[in-house]
């Protein structure tokens, strides 16, 4: 009776500290676990792999400090893949807090692979407020230079070497969106109208209802939270934040499973013992 009661009344704060200790284990002990890619991650990887040389890719990044854990690995892996292949890309955001985060990743990858701004990538920064994405994405898809006008350095689109021949969404081979939420506007107003392929990189919490887009071929791949980032990082053979998080997460999940089992066993034991006492 006493042990079952005690287990049922563990202070929440003890559980929080235990969880913090569990997820910190990989900081102190090198852990290696297999991270096989799922179909949705493979779809995203192959979409980038199959972009014709020299053809433009659009990356839309909305993650920031609050979603580093879920999205940094995805952004790191996609940018690494694009930079390694020398695939020119443009990047922009609908979240003003996002540019410092994605720029840190881009600058590191550009240094590693000797890529040059203006030729290999172009940053447009904060271009469309989140609430006006439906209008912004349509205008951008219809007339890219007319809507974007100039990059973050003030250079007009027409004078940027990588974008000289860009007119509309058909000039992009692929659109990759990375952020907490899926940006449905790219499906509703770009993929369905111009046929440009779309890949989603999103938080796991939002992925459940997004799988149907893969089935209907509206998106060609999807990176689901830190797991998607870790899988992509392994595919491009450059483990980073995604792999770190997913290793720690395995310990956290193991602890949660143990706690769920312990809580249920103690609850059953408590019920049985109290019935016995009543009889």
């Amino acid at each position: 009776m006493i042990w079952a009661d005690r287990l049922q009344r563990i202070d929440n704060r003890i559980l929080y500290v235990t969880l913090a200790v569990a997820v910190a284990i990989p900081v102190f002990v090198r852990v290696r676990m297999p991270i096989p890619p799922t179909i949705e991650t493979l779809g995203a990887y192959e979409a980038v792999e199959n972009v014709p040389p020299g053809k433009l890719v659009m990356v839309q990044s909305t993650w920031d400090a609050g979603t580093i854990g879920e999205c940094e690995g995805q952004c790191h892996a996609v940018i690494e893949h694009l930079m390694r292949r020398g695939q020119p890309f443009v990047i922009w955001t609908s979240n003003p807090a996002s540019p410092p985060f994605y720029n840190r990743i881009i600058e590191a990858a550009a240094r590693r692979h000797g890529r040059v701004y203006g030729r290999d990538w172009v940053d447009f920064g904060y271009k469309v407020p989140g609430g006006a994405l439906a209008f912004g994405v349509q205008s951008m898809a219809r007339d890219f230079p007319g809507y974007m006008k100039s990059d973050v350095r003030g250079t007009p689109v027409t004078q940027i070497p990588a974008l000289r021949h860009v007119r509309n969404a058909t000039d992009f081979a692929l659109i990759v969106t990375i952020g907490y939420n899926p940006i449905g506007e790219f499906i509703q107003f770009v993929q369905s109208v111009y046929g440009t392929k779309v890949v989603f990189g999103i938080a796991a919490i939002n992925s459940t209802t997004t799988y149907s887009y893969i089935d209907s071929k509206q998106i060609v791949g999807m990176l689901v939270g830190a797991r998607g980032g870790a899988e992509y990082e392994m595919l491009v053979k450059r483990p980073g934040r995604g792999v770190q998080i997913i290793m720690a997460q395995s310990f956290g999940h193991l602890l949660i499973i143990v706690l769920v089992v312990v809580a249920n066993v103690s609850a059953l034991a408590q019920r049985r013992l109290s019935r016995g006492a009543q009889a």
Binding site: L19, A20, V23, A24, V27, F28, V29, R30, G66, T67, I68, G69, E70, E72, A203, A204, I205, N206, S207, T208, G225, A226, R227, R241, Q244, I245, A248, Q249, G252, H253, I256
Partner: peptide, 27 residues
Amino acid sequence: SNAIMTRMSVFIERVWFLLTQWLRMGA
């Protein structure tokens, strides 16, 4: 379970930040 995964990722990133970048601990 997906909600737990997301919350856990956010929590892990902060725990790792404190341990590795602030306290500079680790193997």
